[in-house]
Write a protein that binds this DNA or RNA. Structure first.
Lengths: 146, 146
DNA sequence: TTATTATATTGTAATCATTACAAGTTAGTA
DNA sequence: TACTAACTTGTAATGATTACAATATAATAA
């Protein structure tokens, strides 16, 4: 899914969330970096460009954006929260070697979960963990060098 | 899924994990409390019975059991890790009102995720968030009392 | 049973992510 | 241009988890 920056701005305006310099920069970062970044990565990525930026502001901004439904939280490891500007229905794969998070297409709604028939569901998440293709290739190359 | 305590003990023995008093108590707690407890809940639940128990031991024990594949980690909220003695293929629903976690049957392997065809997958997780049936009933009763 | 030893437990201190808070700043509006 | 509610910032607080070193114990063999 392609995220259109201008659409995000309209979305913010319609929700009366002020278009502060810092928020626009965080949004811009997320639309330019599809890496499911952590708060630290966002902060470090923007710090040169916005020297006054505070990490608290990054937290505040992300919380606002999540509340507004413009950003999704990814909780895979318990010690690092990641953020995703793509709120469409998709899954995440985390490589335990290179730590990269890959998106993959999956229609979560195609499941039947009858036990939840009378439950209100706001949010559906799928994530897998393992070793990505590239890391398998890399490690077999290292072995063949022995 | 019914977890057989004796099977867990054999599993531990075969992996050369010592059957210390504290570990047995944590395992017993998990097999008796299908509530996906937090570390605090386990610690508080056992503290009367095992007064010398340390919270560090609960952490250490759970990490060992997770490494051994006897317990699964549930990361839904970023600030509370929960533990599940049921390692079978199933999904979790977290109610945002009563905070309870419900299990539901779902065959995660029934999906096709072709983009991951050459990825090694060790671990698959599904969780939903929303309002459970009981909390919806409760809140409509409160409203009708107005 | 007893002695031995590798492994486990414990309490405290350290770490790290996140939030609380209060003072200063700014976006949006009139 | 002035006003004000909302936002940003830096620091301090919080809370979960881990590191560490001293003590205790499970498993093994004599």
């Amino acid at each position: 899914m392609k995220v259109i920056y201008a659409d995000l701005l309209n979305e913010l305006k319609s929700r009366n969330i002020r278009l502060s310099h810092q928020r626009l920069k965080v949004l811009e970062y997320l639309t330019k970096n599809y890496t499911h970044p952590t708060v630290d990565q966002i902060y470090n990525g923007l710090h040169q460009d916005v020297p006054t930026l505070s990490k608290t502001t990054v937290y505040n901004t992300l919380n606002s954006l999540v509340d507004a439904g413009l950003v999704r939280v990814i909780n895979i490891e318990d010690n690092e929260t990641r953020y995703d500007i793509d709120t469409d229905n998709h899954g995440h794969f985390k490589c335990e070697k290179c730590r990269k998070i890959y998106d993959f297409k999956i229609n979560i709604d195609s499941f039947d979960a009858h036990e939840l028939d009378h439950f209100k569901i706001f949010d559906k998440n799928i994530y897998f963990k393992g070793i990505c293709r590239q890391c398998q290739i890399d490690s077999s190359n290292i072995q063949s060098n022995n």
